[in-house]
Design a protein around this nucleic acid. Sequence first.
RNA 1: GGCUCUGUCGUCUAGGGGUUAGGACACAGCGUUCUCAACGCUGUAACACGGGUUCGAAUCCCGUCAGAGCCA
Length: 441
Amino acid sequence: MNVRVRIAPSPTGSPHIGTVWQALFDFVFAKKKHGKFILRIEDTDRARYVAESEQEIVETFKWLGFEFDEGPNIGGDFGPYRQSERLEIYEKFARELVKKGTAFADEGAVRFKTKKTGVTSWHDLVGSKLITFENSTQDDFVILKSDGYPTYNFANVVDDHLMEITHVIRGNEFISSTPKHLMIYESFGWQPPQFAHLPVLVGADRSKLSKRHGAKSALEFKKEGYLKEAILNFLALLGWTHPEGREIFTIDEMIGLFNFKDFNLASAFFDTTKLDWLNGEYIRKSQNSKLKSQILEYLKDISGGAIEHPTEQEVEKVIPLIKERIKKLSDFIPLTDFLWEKAEYDLQIFQKLNIKDQKEILTKIIEELKNMERPWKADIFEATFRKLAEDLGLSAAQVFQLIRVAVSGQLVTPPLFESIQILGENETVKRVNEVANIIGS
RNA sequence: GGCUCUGUCGUCUAGGGGUUAGGACACAGCGUUCUCAACGCUGUAACACGGGUUCGAAUCCCGUCAGAGCCA
């Protein structure tokens, strides 16, 4: 059997993380079965239609690597994959059902006549279980609205059949409408696909993640400095478990091992705490050269154009210093900007140091800096200021921390010696001098 | 309200008749340390509740409760 799986988002806004989570399993299953992954735009809800979101859907999937085999392309023709351009098809099939007697006209709309006896059931792939509905609970339902647009229930079935979809993988909010879908397949005499109803992702209030509840779009995560590899890995961990219990794995590894039977049926709370950790893990194990281009690309992205500083060489130099200190690409900025920009000083910060006579100490530090042979060497730098600390009756940590704040205006920076090396001898002395001048005794 | 799905540490989860209920994140403590990280070690923390079956139930069955979804 040639497996064909579709993801069918509605263009009601930039796809949020719940949609991406669904798409991940659609994609992984299709690849696992060496089948086709298809994108279809379900735009029959005209009230909520947002034109740009079609492009955002394509852009998001492309960014995450969900290459689809069939579907619209950026800037290309959405035509056949957009339901709004297939209205005559739904109308034709609705008429066919009326002719067969399983649907009837009702105040301008067309309504499907459900079976009222017996049961409708199917074997759901997720959790491998039988789900059964009494047909007596299924009311007649509208398939074609009076404005000529099909309802979700109808368009979905017709398109899935026409596109020869073999596996319908979607959220379990559709479990209740599946008996309706099955009845439509039956009255056409069509072979229904297999169903896999995934649990839904929920937000802090335990209700389904949605834009209305402030669910972030996938592209916002990109803006916040998350790597796509980390996002994908994190999403995979919600509901699915690697057979060896591994927490870190690639999508390719997942494709080889995936099975719906192993899915956890409970809805998962989307909590980014672990995503932050995973993102840090991915950054730490990234090759320096790769991380360099990721950071440069990120900086360019958020500034919306070319940037002067940091340059490629500057980023390269600083990467070993920050690699273990950033969880997100965005963390790069506050940690390093004092290196390429003028440091800003809030004098209150010096009080937090809990060191007396700072002006005098800074003067001594400047003296040492001026006497030190250039270029400064890390070991000599360290020995010099350890000695100075001892002479002043201070701990080495106190002296280093004072230099740190004097040079950066911050309590937290990358390692001091290395930072100063990037800053340069002249700039370092200049900054310490400035601080010594503005600080009170 | 009817129907359906789901309940294991704070979060993501493993397990699925006999386990000290395992792991990861987070959190706390200790170590290392020029700050912060990273790293290492240690710790706190869970089977929703009630019945039943059984020698034995977190695990199987029934009910209750709770949450979610769809429909009205």
